[in-house]
C-alpha cells in the first residue's frame, strides 16, 4: 500500500515539551497518513509516550501545533480530543478494575443519554434502548477480541494480555477515525499477538481506521506497519518503510547509543 499519496490525518508541527530541565519532546515534526498503520519507534526515553500524551490532550505542549483532520487539537482536554475521533490506549493497561469487562466497554460510547441525570431519572425508555444497543455492540467487540467468555468478570482479574485486548476493545466502542496504540504487544504472548496484529489489519481494511503505534518488538512492527517514524531524543530522526528504516545507519546508531547510555 502506498500511503504517500494520501493526505495526512494527523500533523505534529514543531511540538516541544520539557519537564524541568529535561526536554522530553524537542521540536518534533511528523505526519501520519490517513488509513495507514504507522509505527513510532525509538530508544527508551525518546519521548514517544510523551508525544502520545500530548496528542491525546493529557499534557499541554510548551510550544507547537497539532492538527487532526485539519483542525487544531493542541491544548484541548482529552475528552474533546476523543470526541473528534482520536482515541488512545495506555502503555500500562488502565482498566476499570471494579467493573465487569462488559461495562468497561459500555462506558465508552459517546452521546449516551443515560449519562445525563435527567435522562437517567425521567427518560428510562430511551436509556434502555441505548443500553441495549451498546450491550449488543460490546458483545460484538468481545467476540471479535475473543474475550466473550470473560464478559462478567471484573476487569481487575484479567491477565496482562487480556487487559491489553480490553484496551483495544475500548477504542473500538466509539467508531474512531484514528487510534493511538501504546505498545499493544507488551506483555501479550506471541500467539495472541499475532491475533491482535491481524485484528488491527482487519480493522484498517474494514473500517478505514488509521493506526499510530508505539512498539518495541521489531518483528511485530515489521508485520504490522506500512510506515515507520523513528524518534530519538525528542524529535524525529528518520522515516520510511520498515525496510528503509532498518537499513538506515542513523537509526542503528540511535539505538546503540541509547543502549550504551
Amino acid at each position: 500500500m502506498n500511503s504517500d499519496q494520501r493526505p495526512p490525518i494527523l500533523t505534529v508541527e514543531d511540538v516541544s515539551k520539557a519537564f524541568g530541565g529535561l526536554k522530553a519532546v524537542n521540536h518534533a515534526n511528523l505526519e501520519v497518513a490517513e488509513g495507514s498503520i504507522t509505527g513510532l519507534i525509538g530508544p527508551n526515553g525518546a519521548g514517544k509516550t510523551t508525544l502520545f500524551n500530548i496528542i491525546s490532550g493529557f499534557i499541554k505542549p510548551d510550544s507547537g501545533h497539532i492538527a487532526f483532520q485539519g483542525e487544531r487539537i493542541d491544548g484541548i482536554p482529552p475528552h474533546r480530543v476523543f470526541h473528534r475521533g482520536l482515541v488512545r490506549t495506555f502503555q500500562i493497561p488502565r482498566e476499570f478494575g471494579g467493573m465487569t469487562v462488559l461495562e468497561n466497554l459500555m462506558l465508552v460510547p459517546k452521546d449516551q443519554e443515560g449519562e445525563h441525570l435527567w435522562a437517567a431519572w425521567f427518560l428510562p425508555w430511551r436509556v434502555s434502548r441505548q443500553e441495549d444497543e451498546n450491550f449488543t455492540k460490546a458483545e460484538e467487540v468481545l467476540r471479535f477480541l475473543n474475550l466473550h467468555q470473560l464478559r462478567d468478570e471484573y476487569a481487575l482479574n484479567l491477565s496482562g494480555g487480556q487487559k491489553k485486548l480490553l484496551e483495544l476493545g475500548r477504542t473500538l466502542m466509539c467508531n474512531p477515525k484514528m487510534i493511538l496504540l501504546d505498545e499493544p504487544a507488551a506483555g501479550v504472548n506471541r500467539t495472541l499477538m499475532r491475533g491482535i496484529v491481524n485484528d488491527i489489519k482487519r480493522l484498517r481494511q474494514d473500517l478505514g481506521i488509521t493506526f499510530f503505534v508505539i512498539e518495541h518488538d521489531m518483528d511485530i512492527v515489521a508485520l504490522l506497519c506500512d510506515r515507520l517514524i523513528v524518534m530519538s531524543e525528542g524529535s524525529k530522526l528518520a522515516e520510511g518503510t520498515p525496510e528503509e528504516v532498518r537499513a538506515d545507519e542513523r537509526v542503528l546508531e540511535a539505538y546503540l547509543g541509547g543502549q550504551v547510555r
Binding site: 492538527a67 485539519g70 483542525e71 487539537i73
Partner: peptide, 14 residues
C-alpha cells in the same frame, strides 16, 4: 499541509 485553524473555546476553557 492543512493550516491549523483555531477552535473556539467553550465556557469552561475560557
Amino acid at each position: 499541509m492543512a493550516t491549523p485553524q483555531t477552535i473556539s473555546p467553550n465556557l469552561g476553557d475560557r
